[in-house]
Design a protein around this nucleic acid. Sequence first.
DNA 1: TGATATTTTGACGTGAAGTCATATTATCTC
DNA 2: GAGATAATATGACTTCACGTCAAAATATCA
Lengths: 252, 252
Amino acid sequence: METTLSPKQREIRRRESRILELARPVVSSGGLAALSMEELASRLGTAKGTIYNHFPNKEEIVLALAVEAVDRRLDLFNRAVMLRGSSRQRIAAIGIACEVYVDRLPDRFRAEQLIRHETVWGKTSAKRQETLRTCETRCMHTVAGVVRDAIAAGDLVLSTPGRGSATRGHRVEDVVFGLWSLTHGGLVLESTSPSLADLGIVDSRAAIRRNCNAMLDGLGWKPAYDPKAYADWIDRVRGRLVASLPADAAPG
Amino acid sequence: METTLSPKQREIRRRESRILELARPVVSSGGLAALSMEELASRLGTAKGTIYNHFPNKEEIVLALAVEAVDRRLDLFNRAVMLRGSSRQRIAAIGIACEVYVDRLPDRFRAEQLIRHETVWGKTSAKRQETLRTCETRCMHTVAGVVRDAIAAGDLVLSTPGRGSATRGHRVEDVVFGLWSLTHGGLVLESTSPSLADLGIVDSRAAIRRNCNAMLDGLGWKPAYDPKAYADWIDRVRGRLVASLPADAAPG
DNA sequence: TGATATTTTGACGTGAAGTCATATTATCTC
DNA sequence: GAGATAATATGACTTCACGTCAAAATATCA
């Protein structure tokens, strides 16, 4: 199926990237409403109709941006779990991947949030929706892989049949969902909740990490949380992940 | 400051409620874009301009709906913590209050999510923003109160100076933030993530509860999680909270 | 090179937001 | 209670953007 592209088709491909490139900062800062097809076309140097040859509506552009976003996140996750360390270090590395993602690719993070609205989602094509789901699922499988590794290594025991353990009923997927809720939830609250500061949360990242560790400790994931060793690991991981980013990432 | 209202002013007050009543389901199902001032006016039996006497723009209506929402949530939280039980039971009751809120007042939940977008938030008045922040802060103070009660009762010990405990560095606010991230994050993912089912999460509520309990266990909050006793308590709390709701709540 | 297919164009129809001069209605004063 | 003044309601109007589509321009192919 690998046909050579005609010059025209190349041009069209390039234009599609260009559309996303132009739309990304606009959507990030002003949401769907700020994205004007008319203006986008004029910046692109084409007529409005041409853009509609690429995307049937504005929502589809946002979905395309979200797919791009989750692709990037998946890449960070995969790099994170490839680092050598204990299962607990590797799961922590994914948390750091999330932080790096939010800090260095903020426009993608915004796009990903926007698509999570029925209003937007409902107007997009089934095909691209499927693509997004696939990427998201891969992300979760990456996380699940580390949980399974932990179990295989004996660092984590779920469903202890013995005495009434806190882990009773937990499955691998529940652990993934828990980490996801806590990290994603915390990062979203950080960026959207006007009253977080009122609560007295100044370093929300540190709070999220501590909370994740509390949950993992509660599940009995070994070795237990050790603030000092943890901090060192985090710094190393962040350095590695940031270094792996292409040049278009935001400066930090 | 308690002046008697003139007949006209009463009418205006009533109309304001009516506007919110009409807007609520529309905003909930179709978002900001679905709310047409023209149609709202016609349903209300007035001209469009009249609505602009109440709210300077559509966004302000959504913010008003969100304030209403957080008011309701605060009420549920307050009822939850008033129930007699251990500190751990009372904190669990707040989790159930969240579930009841999402299930029985889904339109409010949606409005609360919508306002968390810069696009919407940025167009609203500072005054009403302040109102929302106040309500949100009260909610969090209610949660923080239970955490403090737990500490006072000796059920929870934060910042143990002794051996490297998982709780090192945790403050009361961090615990509140953690529960908030986990519960809110989980409930949002439940309602907006297309790939949760792919992951294999079928009963997300049960998963959220287990995860919260794992985190609290990790913090050493006593008494530790006991699935059986917990389940009974949950049922009782839900019954109480649902019964306290006014008639306009969704049937379950 | 001419025929056919693909792509581009931008004027057009539609619909909704927010404004504001004017009309209407309420309130106050004597 | 009638007239004056203040508050409120109205809806035509301006502005703006989406998405369409028939016609024009361009590319591909034989």
